[in-house]
Amino acid sequence: ARLLHGSIFAKVIEGLRELVNEATWECSGNGITLQAMDSSHVALVSLVMRSEGFESYRCDRNMSLGISLVSMSKVLKTMGKDDSLTIRVNDDSDSIIIAMESQNQDKFADYELRLMDLDSEHLGIPDTDYSCAIKMPSSEFSRICRDMSIMGDSVLICTTKEGVKFSAKGDLGQGSIRLVQTTNIEKEEEAVIIEMKEAVALTFAVRYLSMFCKAAPLSPQVGLSLSEDTPLMCEFKIAEMGHVRFYLAPKIED
């Protein structure tokens, strides 16, 4: 699999590696997918990178590759910001080869990472017709998570047709941020767009939301999909290639 902009892959790894330290990458002719849960089974990440999004891609037979995201992250930190990236696995090999090429083709770096033997627990994620779908700038969402984490470790997300309200309370007191739905949309990327079938009010642990925001560099927008008593779906699209989707179980009344 070859990417002209290796930085995309680095952003994917940085978006995942706090939530899960290692994961099984499923490679097939259609591309690369990954599904993994955090250790407490409260959050899950689902990655899709379609083959047509790569500059070149070939997969002669399906492979499940156990990879340490922490190690992969360390190797990718050596990559130049404009480098292209090629990832290769030879048949019956126990390692993955990561090759980086500088833009002016004068520097070639090669790394080999040992593959891990991971037992992949797979969950069936039902297609959900969410009560509410919010689109907003990913930087805004990151900022809100950071601000709300000052006040408490849980965030209540309430949606109405006017907008969406994030609130948190704790020992210091309480705080809330309300975003009004954007009316005159000049730049889609900066708009707050809310499609609501019915109002929802759900509480989530802010530390997971903040971990999800590590994937914000992938996309200027984030999608939040909510339904009562249903895990939140938080989506960052990977341009012309796929997406990183996070799912987070809500906090419920004792």
Binding site: M37, S40, H41, V42, A43, L44, E121, H122, L123, G124, I125, P126, S154, T203, A205, T230, P231, Y247, A249, P250, K251, I252, E253, D254
Partner: peptide, 13 residues
């Protein structure tokens, strides 16, 4: 409030 688990909502395959 208690933190729910994903396995309460998604079925292990």
């Amino acid at each position: 409030m208690a933190q729910a688990c994903l396995t309460q909502y998604f079925t292990p395959k």
